[in-house]
């Protein structure tokens, strides 16, 4: 009789454990407010990313087309992947003084791992991380970007 009791107890316990699990999924089936997925491309307007989110490196320019990059190449040296390449030139100021400035600030998005080391290394806060994350393009060459805008100048007072 002990065997039969054990047998029935096993069956009962197993069925009870299975029903417990079904209760759980049944709860979620009937409670649609628990749904957590978002319909992504539709919610673009309401999508808020944290300000620290690292999407890509950008160089902010003021309205008068000025940036803060002195061309010190600290970011180029800090980058582990060779993502940044800075080409410098010498600008002659009206007083006739020669001054180092950036010619082109090349940023290879396809090589970037968003490690933030360049931002940390920059002594003048010339570059920062943007929150954009939709980086897909049709040509690989489109991922190589020039960050300084054409005709832009170094901001006054930034050394």
């Amino acid at each position: 009789m002990g065997f039969l009791g054990e047998y029935i107890r096993t069956v009962y316990k197993s069925v009870a454990s299975l029903l417990k699990g079904m209760k759980m999924t049944g709860y979620y089936f009937t409670h649609h407010k628990e749904i957590i997925t978002q319909e992504y491309p539709d919610n673009r307007d309401t999508l808020i990313l944290p300000e620290r989110f690292r999407g890509e490196v950008v160089m902010p320019h003021t309205e008068s087309n000025e940036h803060r990059c002195t061309g010190c190449t600290a970011c180029e040296l800090a980058c582990p992947n060779g993502t940044i390449k800075i080409i410098t030139k010498f600008e002659v100021s009206p007083e006739g003084k020669k001054k180092k400035a950036i010619d082109t600030f090349i940023y290879h998005l396809e090589l970037c791992t968003m490690c933030n080391l360049c931002i940390v290394a920059c002594p003048t806060d010339a570059i920062k991380m943007a929150q954009s994350f939709e980086h897909s393009v049709y040509k690989r060459a489109d991922l190589t970007k020039v960050l300084n805008k054409p005709g832009s100048k170094l901001m006054e007072g930034v050394e």
Partner: peptide, 13 residues
């Protein structure tokens, strides 16, 4: 749809 609702998803939409 059943699987989606049990898995707290929306399913095909």
């Amino acid at each position: 749809k059943v699987s989606a609702y049990m898995q707290i998803r929306l399913g095909p939409n």
